[in-house]
């Protein structure tokens, strides 16, 4: 599906993540900034990828600012951001 506009979901509180998504330049770019990057960096990227592919998103910039969110939280924030970004005004 096509990202129509920039959108964000989540917060910068501990245990949460803020995920921002916007239309890309023809491919998927994910940038992860996490307080637990050393321990969970790869798992975070994998979780975000999973949600993006569920919604068949292949062209977007995604920025994950993670404050130690567990996987179910990350995926929820990602899904919310996608749904918001897919909505036409």
């Amino acid at each position: 599906m096509e990202i129509k506009k920039a959108a964000a979901a989540g917060t910068m509180e501990s245990n949460d993540a803020m995920i921002m998504i916007e239309p890309g330049d023809g491919e998927l770019e994910i940038f992860v900034d996490s307080v637990v990057a050393r321990q969970f960096g790869k798992q975070i990227e994998r979780a975000v990828m999973e949600v993006l592919s569920q919604y068949e998103i292949e062209d977007a910039h995604v920025l994950v600012r993670d404050k130690g969110a567990v996987e179910c939280t990350l995926k929820a924030r990602c899904e919310t951001a996608i749904l918001r970004a897919l909505k036409e005004d």
Binding site: V36, R38, Q39, F40, G41, K42, Q43, V70, E71
Partner: peptide, 9 residues
Amino acid sequence: KITGKPDDI
């Protein structure tokens, strides 16, 4: 089960 298993640093 809640956090996932962290990678070794």
